[in-house]
Design a protein around this nucleic acid. Structure first.
Length: 201
DNA sequence: CGTAAGATTTACT
DNA sequence: GTAAATCTTACGA
């Protein structure tokens, strides 16, 4: 089954829920089940990094879809996005939370090496934590995301078609203007009731 | 060129 | 619950 990333961020985001993402950074495979994402729609979205035009940091979003966009935040953390939408449309989907289902030992080692982690639930709950678990840094900015059957550094597999997931939506987390602006764009998507969804603020 | 703010996480009061 | 860590990008002078 192919995963069509050539659509708008708000269209792709709900389909990513329940999908399996695998990374093979340093030849150490880690697989997670995505449970929480946020959509950022480029030029139409003041909260998106790409809203104010192309820069050295966000150039990846202006390229073709199906690649990774990784940025550094507050000097300490990395956050990973999936670049989507037609070329020239700087849309992206931020990965905010996931459940580690493969390479759990590797995930734990990475979390403990660059931070603190107490419970399995916190392993990949939160965008920066997820990036750590997957081993993603700015080095991987622009890396292509392939189909699961093809292998490669980064692969993604859609959830089973017959698997029903309860999708919940709401305002995005941590962006300024959480007033009417955020309310009119409930572009945060998560699997209802899943414990690996981040708390947000 | 200087300053302000950020798609966060963790530790401490 | 509140504050600090820490650095890059963005914007104003």
């Amino acid at each position: 089954m192919s995963f069509d990333l050539d659509r708008s961020a708000t269209a792709v985001a709900p389909d990513l829920l329940g999908a399996l993402l695998t990374t093979r950074v340093d030849d150490e495979p880690v697989t997670v089940r995505i449970v929480e994402v946020e959509a950022y729609e480029g030029a139409d979205d003041p909260a998106a990094h790409s809203f104010r035009g192309e820069t050295a940091r966000n150039r990846t979003m202006f390229g073709p879809p199906g690649v990774l966009y990784v940025y550094r935040h507050l000097g300490l953390h990395h956050c990973a996005n999936v670049v989507v939408g037609p070329a020239g449309m700087p849309h992206a989907v931020l990965l905010r939370g996931a459940e580690v289902i493969g390479g759990v030992d590797v995930a734990w080692r990475r979390r403990l090496a660059s931070g603190v982690c107490r419970t399995e639930r916190d392993l990949a709950r939160g965008p920066a934590r997820l990036a750590v678990v997957l081993g993603l840094t700015r080095e991987h900015d622009g890396a292509p995301i392939g189909e699961a059957a093809e292998g490669g550094l980064l692969t993604i597999a859609a959830r089973d078609a017959d698997l029903v997931v309860q999708v919940a939506t709401g305002p995005r987390v941590g962006i300024p203007g959480s007033g009417p602006e955020a309310a009119s764009r409930p572009w945060r998507f998560w699997i209802a009731g899943d414990p690996h969804v981040s708390a947000g603020r």
